[in-house]
Design a binder for these strands. Structure first.
Lengths: 323, 323
DNA sequence: AGAATTTATGTAAGTGCTAACGTAAATCCT
DNA sequence: AGGATTTACGTTAGCACTTACATAAATTCT
C-alpha cells in the first residue's frame, strides 16, 4: 500500500476510494455492533429525509451528489425493506416523493448517538494528529471545480513545446521524412511520382543540390519535418513541410519554418518561394504570418498538380520570433 | 452537494468517493485529449509494473490496495487489449507474473509528461490554496488504522451510561415492567402464574404493601427495571430485575440494584434477600459484588419453582458506589 | 515421506454506481 | 391552443469492485 502513497497526487483517486470504503465499513461495523439494522451507504439519503422532510428523487440526487438512477434504485430497495414510502406528488405527477416510515424515524433516533460517537472519535483523532481534514477537503473540492483537464493539457503542451528541438538532416531519420509527408499527402491528396522520388532519396534530390532537410524532435521522437530545395542559384523552394497530426498545435510548424528561413538567409539566398494548395488553410495562415506573400498568378512551371497557391517570402524586417 | 459538506465527518465516505470519481474522470479526460488509449483506473497496476518490473498478481494486489480478484480480472482485460502478458513463474507454478508488453512500455513513455502535468497542476493549486492534502491524508490513514469501530462503540456506551436515569414507579411505565421481565423469563424459563400476577398489577402486588418498583430510562426509553417486595415487617425481597438485552453492558443492572439497596436502607429494612437461579451466572456475579451472600440452604417457602439460589444482603460498609 | 496447512490464483455471484436510453408530465413559445 | 422543449423518473446494460468459494501448488509438521 505504501506504493500508492509514494505515487503522491497521481494515485489520489485510488487512495481516496480506499479510504472511502474503509469509512463505509467502519460505519457498517459500528451499526452491526450496536445492533442497528442500517447500512452505511444509506446514510446520506436517510439523513436528508430526516433533516429536510419528504423529497423528490431528483432533488435528493442533487443534494447527495449522485445520479437520479442511483437514488431511484436505492429508493426501491429501501421501500422493500420498509424504510421509506413513496407517494406521488399531487402537484406534479412526474415526481415521486420519498418519506421516512415511522419505523425508520424510530431507528434513526436510536442511531443518532452512534453518529455522534463516530464524529466525536474522528474529531478527537484528527485534533490529536493536528489535521483539519474537512477544511483541507473543502478547499481541494473547490480546486477541482474549474476546468482542470484543459489546464493540464495546456501544461502538457507547454512542456512539450520546450522539449522540441529542430535539427538538420541525419540519415538515420530518413524514413521519417517519408513517413510524415506521406501521411498528410495521403490524407489530403495522393502521392505524385515526384513526391515519392524526393521523399525516398533526400540526399540526392535535396542535399546534393545545396538544399537542406530539417527535423523537429520531441525528445527522441520525430514529429515534424521540412525541406529547402535549390531551384537555381540563390532561388530556394520551401517544400515537404509536415507535422505529425497528434502533435499539431505545439508550434512545431512555425519553428521549422523559422529555421528554414534562417538557413535560407545563412546561405545568402535571394528568393524563397513555396507552392501549396488553397485547401490547406492553417498552413497558408502560417506562411502568411511568417512573411510569405501570395502571388497573383501561379508559378508557370509547377512540379505539382495539386498546387494552386504560389507564395514568395519578403523579409518582414526584425526577427519575428526566436528559435 | 453542500448538504454533504454540512454533515461534516459523517458524510466523509460519500464525499471522498465523489472526489475519487472526479479524479478518475480528470485522468480519463486528459488521456482522451492527448489521444492516449489509457484508462485512469489502470494507472496503479501499469505504473507498478513499469516501476518494479514483472510482478505476481497477489503481489500487485497487496501493493495497490485491492483484492487479488480485482487484479486478476483487470489483468485478463489488459491481456485482451495487449497491455500486459502473463507468464507462469517457473519457480512457483501457482504464480502468474504480469509484465508490460513492448507497446505498453512505449505508450507509458508517452504518458509520462501527462502524469507530470497532472501532478504539477494539482501541486500548484494545492500550494495556492495553502493545503497539504497528501500530508493530511497520510495522517488520516494512519488514524483509521487502529481498532476504530470498537472505540466508537465504547464511546457510544459511555455516552449512554451518562444518559441512564433510575426513576421510581410511574403508572405510565407499567407495561414496560411486564415487557422487560417477560422477555428474559421466556428466554431462560417460562412465566409462572405468580409472575403474571405480579407483573400485571405492580401497584396492588408490590407498592400497596410498601414495596417499590424502579425503572432505568435511557433518554425516554425504558431499558431496565427491578422491584422491592415487602415480605414481612422490615423484610424485603429484591425481585423482578430485568435489563433489556440490547442495552446490557451499560451497568444498568448495577445501578438499579444500588438504588434498590438505597431504598431498602431509607425504609430502615432489616433483611434484604433475593431468590435466583444458578443458571444466571452474570446476575449472580452482580449480586455477589453488591454484597449479597449465598445461603447454604434454599429458602424453605420459595414462591418460584425455578429458584435454587437464595442470597441475603450484608452491608459491606461504606457506600460502594454512588447512584 | 505423507498429511495438514498455507498460499496463489481463478470463478461466480452480488453490490453500488454510472451512462444511455425511453416515456410521461410539465413548461415554454409563439 | 397546440407543437416544441424541458424536466422527472424508470429501465437496461455495463463497470469496478467485493465476498465467498474452489483448486492446485507449495510449505510445514510431525
Amino acid at each position: 500500500m505504501s506504493f500508492l502513497a509514494d505515487l503522491g497526487l497521481l494515485a489520489l483517486g485510488s487512495r481516496l476510494r480506499a479510504i472511502s470504503d474503509q469509512l463505509y465499513t467502519l460505519a457498517d461495523e459500528v451499526y452491526r455492533l450496536r445492533g442497528l439494522p442500517l447500512q452505511g451507504r444509506w446514510f446520506p439519503l436517510l439523513r436528508l429525509l430526516q433533516d429536510q422532510g419528504p423529497q423528490a428523487i431528483g432533488n435528493i440526487a442533487a443534494q447527495i451528489g449522485q445520479t437520479h438512477s442511483a437514488v431511484s434504485q436505492l429508493a426501491d430497495r429501501l421501500v422493500e425493506e420498509g424504510w421509506v414510502t413513496i407517494v406521488d406528488d399531487p402537484s406534479d405527477r412526474r415526481r415521486r416523493c420519498l418519506s421516512l416510515t415511522a419505523r425508520a424515524r424510530a431507528v434513526l433516533r436510536e442511531v443518532r448517538p452512534a453518529w455522534k460517537a463516530i464524529v466525536q472519535e474522528l474529531e478527537q483523532r484528527c485534533a490529536a494528529a493536528d489535521i483539519d481534514l474537512l477544511a483541507t477537503l473543502a478547499k481541494f473540492e473547490t480546486l477541482l471545480d474549474s476546468d482542470l483537464p484543459a489546464t493540464v493539457v495546456a501544461r502538457c503542451q507547454a512542456s512539450e513545446r520546450s522539449r522540441v528541438r529542430i535539427v538538420g538532416f541525419d540519415p538515420a531519420l530518413r524514413q521519417h521524412f517519408y513517413r510524415l509527408n506521406a501521411a498528410w499527402l495521403r490524407k489530403y491528396f495522393y502521392l505524385e511520382a515526384i513526391d515519392h522520388r524526393v521523399l525516398s532519396e533526400p540526399e540526392s534530390e535535396l542535399l546534393a543540390g545545396g538544399g537542406e532537410v530539417l527535423f523537429a524532435l520531441l525528445d527522441d521522437q520525430v514529429i515534424g519535418t521540412c525541406a529547402l530545395k535549390v531551384e537555381s542559384a540563390g532561388v530556394y523552394e520551401l517544400t515537404k513541410m509536415a507535422v505529425d497530426e497528434s502533435h499539431q498545435g505545439l508550434g512545431v510548424g512555425r519553428r521549422l519554418l523559422a529555421r528554414a528561413i534562417e538557413v535560407f538567409k545563412e546561405r545568402d539566398g535571394t528568393t524563397l518561394f513555396l507552392e501549396s494548395s488553397s485547401r490547406l488553410k492553417p498552413a497558408l495562415a502560417l506562411y502568411e504570418s511568417m512573411g510569405f506573400e501570395h502571388q497573383a498568378q501561379p508559378k508557370s512551371d509547377s512540379h505539382y498538380r495539386r498546387s494552386d497557391v504560389y507564395m514568395i517570402w519578403k523579409d518582414p524586417g526584425g526577427t519575428t520570433r526566436g528559435a
